[in-house]
């Protein structure tokens, strides 16, 4: 006879006498609080420190004329190389933040407006595959100030997400669950290895590029593993409403401050091209945004590609890919700047 998992209150009087105390529940709550308090003594992860450091820098560094914005894929673009491709006379800064979405770019520009450190042109160079995820837990847990967090709640009225994001801010485990997941499932210790790693600065044209960076060696073979492609790349193209909402706000804020936004879609590996239907969804999204904002321009519509060998993983270009892209984007940008003088 197997045990039954169902319970019944056969004898209330006996049950009452045998009732356990709630000590276990209180111990559990105390245990969670103790663990989370102890974890607060660990250093913050590399990404969080990078976000904090760079957004602080943006407030006191002198503004550049042209400012790149986007995510980690965008940060592969060397501001110096772009300047080299465009030609002198333009100051360029790469203000992209790793692991972020348009919401971050909007609030960065807000902070810049408050600090009066504004560019004249923003080059928005997002990865076309990341529009389905607004990275809310990262935004609320690692980036937003309390006032920005409350503003998000007011604008989106999404109490569940806001509360979860706020808990990410309080709880180390929630804030770093991506890193801890990799640690437990793959034995990946890189989160702890980056505790001592100094964060990199916002790149700009004051940082001189080396001759090796000007012409990196061309890789011969692709390192992409076809069996290990992130689901986001294979899934249908989706524009998350929050990403559209905050891109709208970014364009509006830029427009109100006389800033032009030039949208350059980052190329994707040839083998991962999204196909016609997904590209059409993406292109129609860009067209929709352009119809709403007169200060938004595009260079090279569609989703461009580059050989797989130019990538270090499905998202990120390797130094050679970044160089090729910078050269390509530089000449496109030069033409655009010539055709659209202020």
């Amino acid at each position: 006879m197997e045990p039954s998992l169902s319970t019944s209150h056969s004898d209330p009087a006996q049950d009452a006498a045998q009732q356990p105390r709630l000590t276990a529940v209180w111990l559990f709550i105390i245990g969670v609080l103790t663990i989370e308090t102890a974890l607060q003594f660990l250093p913050e992860g590399f990404m969080t420190r990078t976000l904090v450091h760079r957004t602080e820098e943006m407030r006191y560094l002198p503004p550049t004329e042209i400012q790149l914005m986007g995510d980690s894929a965008t940060s592969a673009i060397r501001a110096g190389l772009l300047e080299h491709a465009i030609g002198t006379g333009h100051t360029i800064g790469n203000y992209s933040l790793p692991g972020t979405a348009p919401m971050f770019s909007y609030f960065v520009l807000r902070r810049q407006v408050a600090a009066e450190k504004l560019p004249k042109t923003i080059i928005l160079a997002p990865n076309p595959f990341t529009w389905g995820d607004p990275m809310l837990d990262r935004f609320l847990g690692r980036f937003a100030t309390p006032a920005e967090s409350l503003e998000f709640l007011r604008d989106q009225r999404n109490l569940g997400t806001w509360l979860y994001g706020s808990l990410c801010k309080i709880s180390y485990t929630l804030r770093y669950r991506e890193e801890l997941y990799k640690l437990v499932t793959d034995g990946d210790l890189s989160h702890f290895a980056t505790f001592e790693r100094p964060v990199s600065s916002v790149q700009n044209t004051r940082a001189k590029i080396t001759p090796a960076e000007l012409r990196p060696a061309e890789p011969k073979k692709s390192v992409l593993d076809p069996g290990n492609i992130p689901p986001l790349i294979r899934s249908p193209m989706r524009i998350h409403p929050y990403n559209e909402y905050y891109l709208d706000k970014l364009c509006a804020l830029a427009g109100a401050n006389g800033i032009r936004i030039v949208w350059i879609t980052l190329p994707v590996p040839e083998s991962l091209h999204p196909g016609e239907a997904r590209t059409a969804t993406y292109t129609s999204f860009i067209e929709r945004m352009k119809s709403r904002h007169s200060n938004l321009f595009t260079i090279a519509p569609g989703v461009p590609t580059m050989p797989d060998a130019y990538y270090s993983d499905p998202w990120h270009m390797n130094p050679f890919g970044a160089w090729v892209f910078s050269e390509r984007a530089g000449s496109q940008l030069t033409e655009w700047l010539r055709a659209n003088p202020r």
Partner: peptide, 29 residues
């Protein structure tokens, strides 16, 4: 053959440890 093997007739510290284990499995994994 004990339906509530993990939580019935156990010391509170043991039950709390079971809860903590499950809770952090959910949180991390």
């Amino acid at each position: 053959r004990t339906p509530w093997f993990w939580v019935r007739s156990r010391r509170p510290i043991f039950i709390a440890a079971v809860f903590l284990f499950l809770f952090y499995c959910i949180l991390i994994l």
